[in-house]
Nucleic acid binder design. Structure first.
Lengths: 223, 223
DNA sequence: TTCAAATATTACAAAATTGTAATGAAAAAG
DNA sequence: CTTTTTCATTACAATTTTGTAATATTTGAA
């Protein structure tokens, strides 16, 4: 998870970038050129592709087209040639973002997360044996429907669209309880988590899906 | 359409930007500050918001949060202070992109189009001024959230995914009330239609969205 | 270990949802 | 025009949801 494909022919740059991204919690696969890149892309599942524009054996534009023609995985150009024409061209071949050197590390991470988050909104959300069919507004566990209240549903959708990502209590409260101007006590969330677990977990006392990250928040994990 | 909201307190910059964007086929509404901006945003439907970071009567971050809390309209920061912390902060409050000065016009257009395109491909169901964001499980009317109960939500999703198509009472009942093995009386549907109309129609007595096709069923129409 | 903080669990009242039945109103058929 | 059918509207009780507070448990730190 948080699996990223980096296609970059400058080895030392690739090394330092990988190192940094891994320290930020991503796992990075590195390809040196177009051929490797496509091959890797088709073999594994990535949440985002970072793409250098100029490669020895092809250019970034064509890789991007190819990737976009077969999937929706976000593609971010990451390149020295940040001139305007290239940037426009990048977006034209379907890029999700285009970042010129010098990279500012925290910004880079913010943009990667942004791209991944945007991409996450798909019609079927799955986590272990629980599936939300957002095109019907229905939740199923082992193909058996479970009835969730409006807020329970929204909470679970929030978790599943951010599968594997830690959500702070504050962020969750913000997402769920801003519709009415009213403020809602902090303990409410504990109770909602409990109610969701009772409905979706095999053993609610030992949650395998909705994990508590003590002091930080919660996250949904797949197995 | 291609309607853009520009929130910028530098009048001369705003003028030249508007002019340029209009020459590119956008139609631009301009607000000078936070108050104006929010007001305009809630009144009209925009495809994208361009936001200056520093305003006289508030800062861009809080506007962005506010906008994002009530809709998914893309927000792009457009600002002189392109330092990294601000950029990261921008993404944290939900921005879709962050562009530092100097703006390169064609890149700006490319990024705006990119944001609009990404947004358009999101799982949004729309009918007239009512939008269901299935990726959040939320329904909005004129950008203001309306709370639907679990079954109301599912009924409306059913209608919106079949926009323009007639749904027989029988089909609707089958779709909605099969989760529990129980049977539900026929008049129940009348009541649910009424409740939905009360929530989503401008004039519930003269429904413009949920139409009755006497003897056959109902359908959702887009004016 | 002991303590404090964070989270889990339980129980409860207010509010909202849900389904039904009764009554009204509108449209089509005779 | 009258009747019949269909849908709209209202009112109502049973149930569920919702948020809170009180209590228990767990966790990590001292």
């Amino acid at each position: 998870m948080r699996n990223i494909l980096l296609i970059e022919d400058d080895i030392s740059l690739a090394k330092s970038l990988s190192g940094f991204l891994e320290s930020e919690g991503f796992s990075v696969a590195h390809a040196l050129g177009m051929t490797d890149g496509i091959e890797l892309f088709e073999k594994e599942n990535f949440e985002c592709v970072l793409l250098d524009l100029s490669l020895d054996d092809g250019n970034g534009f064509s890789i991007c087209s190819k990737i976009k023609s077969q999937s929706d995985t976000p593609v971010i150009f990451l390149t020295a040639s940040a001139d305007e024409t290239c940037t426009v061209m990048g977006f034209e071949v379907g890029a999700d973002d285009y970042i010129g050197k010098p990279f500012r590390p925290r910004e880079l991470v913010a943009r990667i997360k942004n791209a991944i988050r945007k991409h996450a909104s798909q019609p079927l959300l799955q986590c272990s044996n629980v599936i939300i069919d957002t095109s019907r507004g229905v939740c199923r566990k082992n193909n058996r429907e479970i009835f969730l209240s409006a807020l329970e549903y929204r909470l679970l959708v929030l978790f599943f669209t951010n599968k594997g990502i830690l959500l702070s209590r504050e962020k969750i409260m913000d997402e769920l309880w801003t519709f009415s101007g009213e403020f809602v006590g902090d303990s409410t969330l504990n109770v909602y988590i409990k109610r969701l677990r009772d409905k979706i977990e095999d053993d609610p006392a030992n949650p395998q899906i909705l994990k508590t990250i003590r002091g930080l928040g919660y996250k949904a994990v797949d197995e």
